[in-house]
């Protein structure tokens, strides 16, 4: 069933990319390995958002919450429990998914802007609790020096761990998008009313989609703990959520690797522009304004055009 979804060409590209990324540590110094790992983590986060945003058409305005919850759950498991060290990397995503279910149950009754705003309200609630609960989450200081397992605590170890998990998750997300569930999900995006009419339970599909996205967001959060060794409340602040939205926009939603590319651009920009000036958000803002203003066709429009031409073809048939 899934074999049809993976054609030879994209498989070839994926393997080449993976091999390239796999040999990267032999050529780059520590800083660039760290940067690449950070891009992979952020890219996985953006891809998980895009699963519900681009493919599901849901206004997931506060996806960073799941990233932050995953990171905190992972870090707290590593610090405060006697569980085997790698358990944190299971607890993180699972807790994120659980939060996703709870938030989803409340949010999916609404649609579009109201859905997004309610999600921001709920997400801000989670953020506020984490921000203030000094005895448990470290409050606004966060938690530093998380005892990451030895094998993956070195920079190369963290890099390979991140690479393998990210690749695995990307494959899983790809399979989910191309599964019957993913197809229905995309049908809901294109026309929720019609999907409802032919017997699709729209709300339940949205809930499941949101939960899966939250799970992968939690995976990204756990990986962040590996790479960075610390967690802080900014991981679930709403501005980060909008930044991930920008990554999806930059790279192009409706494309599978777009958000990963967008994450690469944004994280590199932050890092390199940030070296020369403290005003990197100014530059980022200007780039974004120019992008939306002059290149809507180049980024998002291409795909919208494709959809509208398909709709036109459909209406022409009638």
């Amino acid at each position: 069933m899934f074999a049809a979804a993976i054609n030879k060409r994209s498989f070839g590209i994926a393997v080449t990319l993976l091999v390239l990324l796999g040999v990267l540590p032999f050529f780059l110094d520590r800083f660039y390995i760290y940067l690449t790992a950070l891009i992979l983590v952020t890219g996985l986060l953006a891809t998980s958002l895009n699963m519900v945003l681009g493919y599901g058409g849901m206004y997931q305005f506060h996806h960073a919450v799941f990233y932050g919850v995953g990171a905190y759950a992972c870090a707290l498991t590593l610090i405060k429990t006697d569980l085997p060290p790698y358990a944190g990397f299971i607890v993180g995503p699972v807790v994120a998914a659980a939060v996703g279910v709870i938030m989803g149950l409340i949010c999916v009754r609404l649609s579009k802007l109201y859905f997004g705003m309610l999600q921001i309200a709920l997400g801000s609630l989670v953020w506020a609790i984490v921000y203030r609960w000094y005895s448990f989450t470290g409050g606004d200081d966060g938690l530093h020096g998380v005892p990451v397992p030895d094998l993956i605590s070195s920079i190369n170890g963290a890099y390979y761990f991140t690479l393998i998990i990210t690749a695995l998750c990307m494959v899983l997300i790809y399979l989910i998008i191309n599964s019957p569930f993913g197809r229905i999900f995309q049908a809901i995006r294109d026309n929720p009313e019609r999907s409802e009419t032919i017997g699709v339970n729209v709300k339940r599909h949205q809930l499941v989609g949101l939960t899966i996205a939250a799970f992968f967001g939690g995976v990204a959060g756990s990986l962040f703990v590996t790479v960075e060794g610390s967690v802080f409340p900014d991981l679930m602040f709403w501005t980060l959520s909008l930044e991930i939205l920008i990554m999806c926009l930059l790279g192009g939603w409706f494309t599978f690797l777009g958000p990963m590319v967008g994450a690469g651009i944004v994280v590199s920009l932050q890092t390199f522009v940030g070296m020369y000036t403290e005003y990197w958000t100014l530059i980022m803002g200007i780039i974004l304004i120019l992008l939306i203003f002059f290149l809507p066709e180049g980024v998002l429009g291409f795909f919208l055009e494709r959809f509208s031409s398909r709709e036109q073809a459909m209406s022409a048939e009638k």
Binding site: K112, Y279, L282, M284, G285, L288, I292
Partner: peptide
């Protein structure tokens, strides 16, 4: 809405740094 939201967010980034400047 989504594009407008991101567009105004871009302005928030710009204004934030301009105030700092």
């Amino acid at each position: 809405h989504l594009m407008l939201l991101l567009f105004t967010f871009a302005f928030m980034l710009v204004f934030g740094d301009l105030v700092k400047l």
